[in-house]
Nucleic acid binder design. Structure first.
Lengths: 347, 347
DNA sequence: TTTTAGCACTTGAAACTGTGGAGTGCTAAT
DNA sequence: ATTAGCACTCCACAGTTTCAAGTGCTAAAA
């Protein structure tokens, strides 16, 4: 994978350029490097090497007389060299675990909390999303009689997810009707996806309920709504403000188009879906590697987490000159922490 | 309330200035007014009137040779004249009702949806929040036995709110334990706030549960968490991007400080709490009327909604030159719509 | 052969300048 | 009381200059 044309010194210089640019956000010059990074050679030598690196496509000059900026190729090299080696660094793993310790139950809260943590740990905008798979299945229905025209329908799904909804009825029922109805649901609808709940099955349940058949329609509406909610894709962002600190986004119109994508969840899901491969592990998409024009100066990093049927991911969005080593480390830990926390809870 | 020094023509001119500035965002000149607004007088006359208005504090000149900009006093006059007269305008009430029609049950979803609607109707950032009152009381507990180490605890609160949580136990129980436990909860904890659930009561329940007394601690933890969640203050924002379209926020540093407040929910709650008086009706806080420095160029408009024990509010955040007539109209309708929708549902 | 010092060259950012237009206030005429 | 006319002010904008940073190249040094 490593480019055989690169000498050791060139790699050293390249890394120095990337590091410096990540910190300053400004083009890096030869003099600056020779002074700060204690290379044992003069600016002129570094210039020569940088010229080679530019020719090979690792560095770019914004204009004739500016320093150099890493190309996407350079970031890619940098990141690839980084992945897999971050685990020996020292870290705030204690804090991550601490902050994850309290209960994460519903997917919705997991997403919010995950994006919040990603943002707070990294100085970039945090993102957490789940993909819509349409696979939710009810394990068990329970009904709780509230009054003649209301009852609570409790649906237990896989992965410890429990949803309860109040069903209002336009007519009176007894406690026994609720009991019989949930019995029927448990016989006919358990382990079906929303799509598999076909009309004939519904009609059958109506028949069983006899004179109380009208309970079925309002209840089914609630069941469909709940399952659709679980099945649908969703994205949570946190810390949008953090983007503003980077000069890359100081142009308000650019910022606007990026935030436009981020805020329209459908569009964002498109971007992610285009990128996302199902495999686990850290995904790093640098600049134009993203399949979207407004993200051409933006890096997207995330890690998938699979938990039973549900699949979700957590990561960050920021400028191309992202602090890759820190972010990759953090996101990896955060994802692992969430994963572990959720698995434990299911035990 | 109306300033007696103002002549009818001055009021007319002032209104024209406010309207024009709301639309363009730029200082308004005498020539522009005389041409567009069909006053039957020359620019010079308008200039004289504007000079008076400036002296009285209704207009401000950014610099010697620019047009005039309305002062906060002018906006205040404009808004006060507006409030109470919006009800005869034509409107999109149908659409509001249409988009509210689907079930709003949990407070959390109400907030999200309300802020989303406020943003989508008005071109400003939508905001919805509930104040933390610490008044949640459980009407009824129900338990559903899941397995030897798990059961679902269903808590019905006032206002149709139902929360269910899975409780994991470090030891085995039977279905009968769950039944007895919920019975005890219904005797001792119903209609208490979280604060009122004192240690003696808990101990009593433990005694009643006898050998299964260890069920109490994990369950109480869940109950506390749930009630705290309901009791705590919360804010939802939507459409933060909309702020970016206004030149008022094209300065990134200004934008940053404002967004900083908006994103940190605690800070935002402070700002709102400082402003919010419990009375219903539309609240309009213009510029420095807000008790926060970063909001000195920003207007905050919201309307309170009281529903049983819960108190929440919906509104928008935007530049001082807000389209007040439209926003006041919309927020009022939106709040009424939500109110009606929620009350209906409780019937 | 590699490294380095020196130098001319390029270029954008920032400071500066000049011009034009928009808007004003004042005065005198209506 | 209103308005036309006019001199004045001042910002926005475009063009210009200056400056510093950084480069590539060449020739000398290691």
């Amino acid at each position: 994978m490593a480019d055989p044309r690169l000498t050791a010194r060139q790699i050293q210089i390249l890394k120095a350029v990337v590091d410096a640019h990540i910190n300053n956000g400004e083009p890096v010059g030869s003099k600056y490097l020779s002074e700060t990074d204690a290379f044992n050679c003069s600016p002129a030598t570094i210039r020569n090497e940088m010229a080679s690196l530019e020719q090979m496509g690792y560095l770019v000059q914004p204009h004739t007389s500016a320093g150099r900026v890493p190309s996407e190729l350079a970031y890619r090299l940098y990141v690839d060299a980084l992945i897999g080696q971050y685990s020996q660094t020292k870290f705030e793993i204690d804090e991550i675990n601490e902050r994850l310790r309290y209960k994460l139950t519903e997917m919705d809260k997991i997403l919010s909390e995950a994006s919040r943590l990603a943002a707070s740990f990294t100085d970039y905008t945090g993102i957490a999303f789940k993909s819509g798979v349409g696979k939710a299945r009810v394990n068990r229905f329970n009904g709780i009689f509230l009054g003649p025209r209301d009852f609570i329908l409790v649906m237990s799904f896989d992965d410890d997810v429990v949803k309860s909804k109040t069903v209002h009825l336009p007519f009176s029922i007894t406690e026994d009707v609720v009991r019989r109805f949930t019995e029927a649901l448990n016989i006919y609808l358990v382990n079906l996806t929303a799509d598999e709940m076909s009309m004939p099955i519904i009609v059958k349940i109506e028949a069983i309920m006899g004179s109380a058949g009208a309970i079925v329609h309002p209840a089914m509406k609630v069941i469909y709504e709940t399952m659709n909610e679980l099945d649908s894709a969703d994205v949570k962002l946190d810390g949008i403000t953090k983007l503003l600190q980077y000069p890359e986004y100081s142009d308000v119109t650019k910022l606007r188009s990026l935030l436009g994508v981020l805020e329209e969840k459908d569009k964002l899901m498109d971007v992610i879906a285009a990128n996302n491969s199902p495999e686990d592990g850290i995904h790093v998409y640098i600049g134009t590697e993203n399949d979207s024009d407004v993200m051409k100066d933006t890096t997207l990093i995330f890690k998938n987490i699979t938990l039973g049927n549900s699949q979700f991911a957590v990561g960050v969005i920021g400028p191309k000159r992202m602090n890759y080593s820190k972010v990759i480390d953090m996101i990896s830990r955060l994802a692992n922490g969430i994963d572990r926390m959720l698995s434990d809870e299911n035990k």
